[in-house]
Design a protein around this nucleic acid. Structure first.
Lengths: 248, 248
DNA sequence: CGGTCTGTTGAAGGATTTCAACACTCGTGG
DNA sequence: CCACGAGTGTTGAAATCCTTCAACAGACCG
């Protein structure tokens, strides 16, 4: 096994008092689907928001809970997962700042279909379902932007379905590492470092496999010198060869 | 094995000349996301549409083809599938009249991510990407309706991911039969008949398994008297017990 | 009436899970 | 400051589920 140093991740340990209302206006413009709005429109929307802080490991909301608020991630990383009765979870998505979650729909059940859990310390904005629908109605460009983002999420979900259905576990894990590296990758001394805490369990829950199998495959990739990994972190040492392995 | 009669499905063999422009106005109001529009607005939108007929087995568009038109299914059934390089497909969705497909997004690649194939003879309306975006912009309720539908598709895709990742093949197939029965089920002499041509291959491609395994499991369900099935058709004889099998 | 498509079934082989034991890391409290 | 315990990661071996290869039967089409 490779020797492992303590985590190379930069986890800016944001504490509760940094996650304040004052933070809002600056961040609001950063959210993709509000980019089409003017300053005065933003100010108007800004009044509707709440801001909350959660510690790493906390749940922002639970699966089957009544869905009343739409949320936007301001700082940190959040994972969306589904639980099953047998205790086997599946990790649907990893979110980074600017993404929204806890989506609401007039159709179907008004309960969250998944659990949102803080993967790091996080800061989250939220506002009420009715306020959100009002904004969609009054600002068509916002509705279109939200639609575009949702459409892309659907595509990505179809990608995952396709991978889960057609690829072997090692291939799925290689693909997952590739996708994570696009979203969270950052150059480092170890290669492309995935800037998020990521356990074997998380990887297993994304790939729909067991932690043991995920561990075995990660060890194998490490033996082949394609990745470097330690407790809760992964870096991709040789992205080209990893991509070759994913395709061929 | 149970003796099998020829198909009990009602396949109204619509031929090309029934699928005409004149059909449009009546069908347009049927499409969920146009329901919020007035007659005169519908007449306006109606001008932009094309109508086409396809035979069962035809492809309406292919994966990786440039995406230029949004389509609405008027008559018949369409399946959306993804191909993989190794020839193993996955069936993402089965559509019935009123549903739209070939979704466009300003973000990401402008190519279709899946192949749309006629499962029966079908009649399809379509219009250009720019026309569609114009409608979304000018009629906010339409944009919101499309968003709600897309959000629900995303939920359903997450459901499928969850099932694929956590359930055994028999459980997945039972769940798939349940979902299909909600969407296509119709009372018949055999029980709840799924009103669509459905091969073992289709079931296998939905469950992410091989046709042989799908066949074995269907035989097993038939032995247990939970379903009745023949060439390209399936009826659910005992929905309650099937549901119990899916949950427990 | 032959050919092709669909569905079925058996048997061998392989991939992955499961159970089990152990090693390492990190934070906490004695 | 060290020891402990919980959480995380690793590895082995047996068991299981599923795939794959193969052969064949029945249905539908021209």
């Amino acid at each position: 096994m490779t020797q492992k140093r303590s985590t190379p991740l930069h986890l800016s340990n944001i504490s509760g008092h940094h996650c304040t209302i004052d933070l809002r206006l600056g961040k609001l413009a950063m959210v993709p689907f509000f980019q089409s709005l003017s300053k005065s429109e933003l100010r108007e929307i800004n009044k509707k928001f709440d801001v909350n802080h959660f510690n790493s490991g906390d749940s922002i909301y639970f699966q089957a809970e009544k869905a009343t608020r739409l949320r936007v991630l301001v700082h940190g990383i959040i994972k969306l997962l589904r639980h099953s009765s047998e205790g086997k979870d599946i990790l649907l998505d990893m979110l980074k700042p600017g993404e929204f979650f806890g989506t609401l729909s007039d159709l179907g059940e008004n309960v969250y279909q998944e659990t949102a859990m803080a993967q790091t310390d996080v800061c989250v904005m939220s506002f009420g379902a009715t306020d959100f629908r009002m904004i969609l109605k009054n600002y068509p460009p916002v509705a279109i932007a939200v639609l575009d983002i949702t459409t892309n999420k659907l595509r990505s979900s179809h990608d995952k379905l396709h991978q889960l259905a057609t690829l072997s576990v090692p291939q799925r894990i290689v693909h997952i590492l590739g996708m994570l590296s696009e979203k969270f990758g950052e150059e480092s001394e170890y290669g492309k470092l995935l800037q998020l805490p990521l356990s074997r369990r998380d990887i297993a829950d994304m790939a729909g496999t067991s932690t043991e199998t995920a561990s075995r495959i990660m060890s194998d990739l490490q033996d082949k010198e394609l990745i470097v990994s330690g407790r809760q972190w992964v870096a991709i040492k040789n992205p080209d060869q990893l991509k070759k392995l994913a395709d061929g």
